[in-house]
């Protein structure tokens, strides 16, 4: 299996497009940091607001949110924690990270994983489909390797690629932050449920990235299935990206129906349990993980079934 993955890895990096993706990812992260710096330096001239005022305002807003009776446990936890942290900051004079600091860009890096999803979809859709369109599938499947092994190596390679891009995103965000903003003032605080403590912002950033990776993973798997079933990477890429955008919109449309709880895109964003914003409140982390896993099994099941049964006529 390792040898097969080595093969897929070699083919992947022999294509210019893969290198282009890494390059684009880094360029976009640096560009967005540069733009933030520029916009910040022009827009905030003359307006000097102290961090105490900002934190106090946030605290007030969060307290208002907590009044909402429709909140679930995860949301209550989140807002309670935020309020406690804000209190602690004001009492002990502990400043949060500046908006333009290396630390804050690391913490926000997971938001850029949607870009990684996009690139992963392209790779996942093409990794099997391109073998068909190039005609190399005949060469690949007349080897003493069972078809499911070939497909597994392709799937794992796609996921390793996605993981690598995610790590690159985090590191590039840190580097871009360092270059454009430098290490800023401030301390990262966490709410343990009973008290406020100093915490590692890297740990928090990695946690958020791992949670965001669930979306990369499931949408990548979906694109992988489409590429395998339709043998056309353009169709698979198009359909996956279309669904990625409309799928999330549909969550709001369907939010009044029971079915929403079993709908894939209700669950793709796992960071929702740690951000206070949940379009569908009556779900839990466990439930999301189960739903995602069932979809994952379904997608892979269809891929394996069609790939190992198919007569190769290309």
């Amino acid at each position: 299996m390792l040898k097969l993955m080595q093969n897929e890895w070699m083919k992947l990096w022999s294509k210019k497009a893969s290198w282009m993706m890494v390059f684009l990812l880094v360029v976009i992260l640096f560009a967005s940091a540069a733009i933030t710096k520029y916009v910040n330096s022009t827009a905030n001239e003359g307006i000097e607001e102290s961090w105490q005022n900002v934190v106090a305002a946030q605290q007030e807003a969060n307290q208002a949110m907590l009044m909402d009776p429709n909140m679930n446990e995860a949301q209550k936890d989140y807002y309670t924690g935020q309020i406690a942290i804000a209190e602690y900051r004001l009492e002990n004079d502990v400043q949060p990270f500046e908006f333009t600091s290396m630390q804050q860009s690391v913490l926000d890096a997971h938001e850029m994983l949607s870009l990684v999803t996009l690139f992963t979809v392209v790779i996942a859709a093409g990794i099997t489909a391109s073998e068909f369109s190039q005609g190399t599938i005949k060469m690949l499947l007349t080897r003493p390797v069972r078809r499911w092994k070939v497909l597994t190596s392709k799937y794992l390679t796609t996921m390793v690629f996605a993981g690598l891009l995610s790590v690159i995103t985090l590191l590039a965000a840190a580097l871009a932050g360092l270059v454009f903003f430098g290490i800023g003032e401030g301390t990262f605080l966490v709410w343990t449920g009973s008290e406020v403590m100093e915490g590692s912002y890297w740990r928090e950033a990695i946690k958020l990235s791992v949670l965001s990776f669930a979306s990369v993973w499931i949408i990548g798997t979906f694109a992988f299935m489409l590429g395998t079933v339709f043998r056309s990477s353009s169709l698979a890429i198009g359909l996956s990206i279309f669904l990625m955008f409309t799928g999330i919109q549909a969550v709001f449309l369907l939010s009044n129906y029971e079915i929403i709880k079993y709908y894939l895109f209700t669950h793709t964003d796992l960071t929702q349990f740690y951000s206070g914003f949940m379009p569908v409140p009556d779900i839990t982390m466990t439930m999301s993980l189960i739903v995602l896993f069932v979809y994952f099994l379904l997608f892979l099941g269809i891929s394996y079934w069609t790939f190992s049964k198919r007569d190769i006529t290309a």
């Binding site: 022999s14 190039q134 005609g135």
Partner: peptide
């Protein structure tokens, strides 16, 4: 096996193509 025109990975060298297939055999 050679099925019709042998389709190779065009974006790789001939050697890498052979390396690729050799890894699939014992």
């Amino acid at each position: 096996v050679i099925v019709e025109n042998p389709e190779m990975y065009k974006y790789m060298s001939g050697y890498k193509n052979l390396l690729h297939f050799s890894r699939m055999h014992k």
